[in-house]
Amino acid sequence: MFAIFKKELRAYFINPVGYVYVGVFLTAAALICAYTTIQKSSYSTTAYFQYLLFAFVILIPLLTMRLFSEERKMRTEQLLLTSPVSITGMVFGKYLAALSLFAATVLASCVNFFPLFSYAIQERATSTTDAHVGPVGGQMVGCLLGVLLVGAAFIAVGLFVSSLTENQLSAAVITIGVLVGMMLIGVFNSYIAAAPVRAVLNWISILSRYEGFSLGLFDFAAVVYYLSISGVFLFLTVRVYEKRRWG
């Protein structure tokens, strides 16, 4: 498993796709941060993280699209599946590689907050009231955790889609489609009149679970929810490979 993890992590930087992902991610994060905080003269990072979630719909398929489809196309999965590594080990190795790069970029994008803190320090020096000035640490940590959990779930979805096809591009497009669908459930459910339907959609929505984090709350149920989504899709990926063996 560790060998596969290392190989995938290296592969991101042998191929241009890893650089593209990191570059696009950091640029998008910086722009979103500038527009939602500095330009609006606001210390609140809630909007920043929310926009970032929508950016994931495009960014995460870049990470996951080639993980399995490429192996299948190049017939290298035969090597992995005939080596003494279990299918679960193989899936987890790849998942953790994508997750690590994702988490690293999310953390790297936190440099965007330095201007906010430096502004806050300046403003605090001249401030005459006792009121809190500057970004709220708890809220930021909450959002960061929420964003990481959503990303983990999205990567599992992308991994699963990648295991279904031989073509990277179709893997990416299908993943984007599925992720957009998952996001839209949350966006559109407020337009639905029937209360029971709305309640159900709200319950399964990716976005509604995220709200707690954006307020700086640690919502344990939401953590379980996101981890479950990741778990389900990873399990399905393992099943895809098991099924193919028996097929």
Partner: peptide, 9 residues
């Protein structure tokens, strides 16, 4: 295997 499982990169 029939087609050697190589990573060209």
């Amino acid at each position: 295997p029939e087609q050697p499982p190589l990573y060209p990169d």
